[in-house]
Design a binder for these strands. Structure first.
Lengths: 279, 279
DNA sequence: CGGATAGTTGAGTTATCTCAAATGCAGTGG
DNA sequence: CCACTGCATTTGAGATAACTCAACTATCCG
C-alpha cells in the first residue's frame, strides 16, 4: 500500500492500487474525492485523464477497459507515482524535469512567484488532470506545482509520452483540444485579474471549480470538498487573504454559499452564476 | 502590387511581393519596420516566422533559401495574404476560422472582451509572428485579432499546416518551444496584472516590445516604431487610458523614455530594466 | 494542553478609477 | 488655405475598491 512520501516506480506493476480504487469507486457508481485509508492515506481516485486515452497509464492499461488502448497494442509509458502531503511542493519552479506530471488524486495548484514573495496561482489541478499539456514538450520554466490537499501524482517519461501522442491523429486532436482549453482558461484569468471586481473573481473561481468537479461526478448535490485556504484563493484571484475573507463573509450573509470545515455548498447557484457571465 | 483590402489567394504565386521585399530588405542588411510605398502602402517585412521553417510559406519557398524546406520536397501550404488598415478587425472573436493567421508586416493585437466593453489585450503580434500556435489545432474561441498599425496577414490552411508540422520531429520540437513561450508570456501577464504596479506593468510591456523588435533587427539604436495608442497600452496592462497617460508623463519627466509621433526612444535602459526584473 | 496556522474584524491608507474640461493633431470638404 | 470634425492626449479634482496593519478568535495537530 502506498504511503505518503513513498515512490512506486512502474511500467505496469503498481496498477494494483488503481485496480483496488476502481473496484471501490465503481461499487456505488460515484467517485468520491478521495478514499481514506487508516492513517489518512489516500488512493488515486481519478476517472482517467488525458493519459488514459493514450493507453499509457498503467492504472488503466487493464484488459477489458473499453477506453484503454492496451488492446490496440500501445505500450504503457514508464511512470512513477508519488504521494505528497498537503501544502508540500510537488515540482520546483526551475526544476528541469523530463516528465509529464499528472494529478491522480487530490488537489494541486500551479503558480508563479515574484522574488518578493508575491504569487499568482495560475490553475488548480484536480484528480485526473495533467498539470499542463506543455509538459509534453518541455518543462514549464518558472511554474511551481504544489499540493493543496494530499495529492498522488504520477510522472510519465516525457519523450515516450509525446511520441505516443504524436503518432496517433486522434490523440493529436485531443491534445489540440486540451491546449485550447488551457489557453481559454488563461485568457479568462487575465480578463478576471484586469477587469473584474473582487466579488466576480471569487465567485467565478468557485463556480468553475464546482463545475469541474461536478462533471467528474465529484459533487454531491451542491456540495463539494474544498481544501483551498483563503490565502490560496487570494493567490489565485490576485487579491489579499484579508479581502477574500471579507468578500466570502459577504457571500455568506447574502446566502450565496456556505463554506466551513473543508466543505463548500452552493446555496444560490442562479445568483452566483450571474457573476460568471457578467461584470 | 497589393493594396489595402485586397486579397491574394496563392499557393506560390504572390511570392513576388515577398521577393521584392527581401531584395529591398537585404540590400543594406537591415530590415526596416515597413517599406513605405507611394500612398502609404506597406509590404511584408518579416524575416520569416515559424511557418518559414515548415517550408510552407510561399514567401520563402524560394530555391536557394537555406532556411527553407523547399529543397527537401515540402509542399507550400495554401494561403491568402490580406492587408488591413490600422485599427481594423482581422479576426472576429467567434469566427470559426479554419486557418492559421500570421502577421507578415505591421503590428496587431489579440484581445478578449467582456460584454460590457471592458477588454484585455492578451498579446501584441509583430511582423513575422503567428497569432498563436493554438490555431494549428483549432480557432481560438473568444479571441479577437485586430490591426494596430497597417497589417498584412497571411492565412494558412489549418489542416495542411498542422499535418506538415506533425510529420516532422524537428518542427514538433519548434512547436513545443513556441507553445512554451506563449505559456510563459501568458503566465507573466497574469503575474503583471495581479501583482505588479502600474509603473512596472507599463515599463515591462514597453521593454518587452522593444526587445522583441531589437531581436528582429527592427530597432535603430534605442528607438523603435511604436504605433500603439495609449488606450491600447491601457487594454494591455489592465489600466485606464488616463492612468497610462499619467504614468507615461512621469516616465518622460524622469527621462526614462521619449514617446512622440509614433516613435519610442528608450533613454535609460538600465533604470527601465529594473522594473522588468523586480517589483 | 500548547503552539502554530487559518480566519475574522475594524480603522486608516493608497493606488487606481471616474468624470470633466482643455488642448493638440490629422483628415475632410469647401 | 481655412474651418470643422473626430480622435488622442493631457491635467485636475474627487471617489472608491482594495490594501496594510493590527489585534483577536477559532481550528488543527502533535
Amino acid at each position: 500500500m502506498l504511503k505518503v512520501g513513498e515512490v512506486a516506480s512502474t511500467t505496469e506493476t503498481s496498477s494494483e492500487a488503481f485496480r483496488a480504487r476502481r473496484n471501490a469507486g465503481t461499487r456505488d457508481g460515484v467517485a468520491g474525492a478521495g478514499m481514506e485509508i487508516s492513517g489518512g492515506t489516500y488512493l488515486p481516485t481519478c476517472n482517467g485523464c488525458f493519459v488514459r486515452k493514450t493507453g499509457a497509464c498503467p492504472g488503466f492499461g487493464v484488459k477489458g477497459d473499453p477506453d484503454s488502448n492496451a488492446q490496440r497494442g500501445v505500450q504503457p509509458v514508464q511512470s512513477q507515482i508519488q504521494v505528497f502531503p498537503a501544502r508540500r511542493p510537488i515540482l520546483h519552479p526551475r526544476e528541469e524535469a523530463d516528465f509529464v506530471p499528472v494529478i491522480c488524486s487530490g488537489w494541486a495548484a500551479t503558480s508563479i512567484s515574484l522574488s518578493n514573495g508575491r504569487k499568482q496561482i495560475v490553475s488548480f489541478l484536480l484528480a485526473g488532470e495533467a498539470a499542463s499539456m506543455n509538459y509534453l514538450f518541455e518543462a514549464c520554466a518558472g511554474r511551481a506545482i504544489e499540493a493543496v490537499s494530499q495529492v498522488s501524482c504520477r510522472k510519465f517519461r516525457r519523450n515516450d509520452m509525446r511520441d505516443a501522442v504524436m503518432q496517433n491523429p486522434s490523440l493529436v486532436a485531443s491534445l489540440g483540444r486540451a491546449l485550447g482549453e488551457e489557453r481559454e482558461r488563461s485568457d479568462q484569468l487575465s480578463l478576471d485579474l484586469s477587469r473584474r471586481s473582487a466579488e466576480a473573481r471569487i465567485a467565478r473561481l468557485i463556480w468553475s471549480l464546482f463545475e469541474r468537479l461536478r462533471k467528474k461526478g465529484q459533487a454531491q448535490d451542491s456540495v463539494i470538498d474544498f481544501p483551498v485556504r483563503q490565502q490560496q484563493l487570494a493567490d489565485a484571484t490576485g487579491l489579499t487573504a484579508v479581502h477574500v475573507c471579507k468578500v466570502l463573509s459577504r457571500f455568506r450573509s447574502n446566502k450565496l454559499l456556505r463554506l466551513d470545515g473543508r466543505k463548500l455548498t452552493l446555496l444560490d447557484q442562479k445568483r452566483l452564476q450571474e457573476f460568471v457571465e457578467w461584470r
